[in-house]
Design a protein around this nucleic acid. Structure first.
Lengths: 191, 191
DNA sequence: CGCCGAGTTGAACTGAATCAAGAAACGTGG
DNA sequence: CCACGTTTCTTGATTCAGTTCAACTCGGCG
């Protein structure tokens, strides 16, 4: 199974040995469910590409409550890049929701790649842009929809994920409590 | 006053005549406060770069309520790019919050620029990435903070904007009602 | 078998929405 | 420059979605 960055590089028609050199600097890791890849507050230089399984990123707020920012099932890229760009400690935690295979990539390798091969940067720009669309949609959902509407929308958008993930994580992602989600689901049974 | 894209092209050391050609295809427009640049549901091919004044983008939800997604004061870029990438009608409206000077850029010009000059794409990738950070922070704020906390954070992050904008627009951006914001402000006076 | 995390259910509470009405600020035309 | 109508902002009363806290069930796993 080949990583997302490799795929992008290949689509950008980079030399095979450039790709190999990049790939050689990525570390394939097998991580157990629950293991932590990035801990908030620590220094962190890695971006992860899930090959199998599922990762997530989350923040812990001032009241000690967790909020899931993103899930990263197969093929997804997940990272707390903000701390890396700004050279500050990690803001988010990243851990494994399931036993997973991941590619661990040094952030500087990606920066280097973007600087050296702008065609890769162009592809990443499209990737980023799509992420922006998704985030705007999530913001709209948060400000305009009820918990029930957001849950329905989630199950429709990510039908596979909504079966794989524990309910309390979905609740956290949707910005509601596990109790509230439980009640929403109960209500939906009668519809 | 030169546009943001021009600045990026110049930083990317593109030929002066390429820059001029791009600039010649942008339309400088003077828009009155309240005038609508993009109407949801319409076809739309433009990205806007505010030179002076302030624009905003917003959605109208199923209950007829507006939600502001973004403000674009001087130097900012604003667009509903999702509809353009997907060749579907606009999802958002964009209008002028103040009398403004804007640069109207055909989306295809930008796509073209990115395809032809990957170094520009690389710069845009960084721009997009920063937008992603901001959006994540906004999501975290929405799920973890009270209306009061979000308002305080907004005034600290955008002190200039928080004075220029009408209160009900700030409320809309924060995802609360104007009444709620009015009460929050009253409460803050006693602190 | 016993434990522990996940999910459910109930009851009380609360932050913000809603609805309604009034006050203040604004700009537009005479 | 004033008068008017239109937004914008404020304040109060009520309602409601979702939180909180606590107790209980269930299923898996050592």
């Amino acid at each position: 199974m080949t990583g997302t960055f490799e795929k992008i590089m290949r689509e950008s028609l980079l030399d095979e040995d450039v790709i190999r050199r990049f790939a050689s600097r990525c570390v394939r890791r097998e991580v157990k469910k629950g293991s932590v890849l990035v801990r908030a507050g620590d220094e962190n230089h890695y971006t992860y590409n899930t090959l199998a399984g599922c990762l997530r990123s989350f923040v812990t707020d001032s009241k000690g409550k967790d909020h899931i920012l993103q899930f990263a099932p197969e093929g997804w890229i997940i990272a707390d890049q903000e701390n890396q760009v700004k050279a500050s400690p990690a803001l988010y935690c990243i851990d494994a929701v399931e036993n997973s295979h991941v590619l661990e990539i040094d952030f500087r390798e990606i920066e280097d790649l973007m600087a050296r091969y702008p065609e890769v940067a162009a592809k990443l720009a499209h990737l980023y842009r799509n992420r922006i669309f998704a985030l705007y949609n999530r913001i709209i959902a948060l400000v305009s929809q009820s918990a029930e509407e957001r849950y329905i929308h989630f199950t429709q958008t990510y039908p596979q994920l909504s079966h794989r993930l524990p309910q309390h994580m979905i609740a956290s992602y949707l910005g509601i409590t596990p109790e509230a989600l439980s009640r929403v689901r109960k209500r939906l049974l009668f519809k």
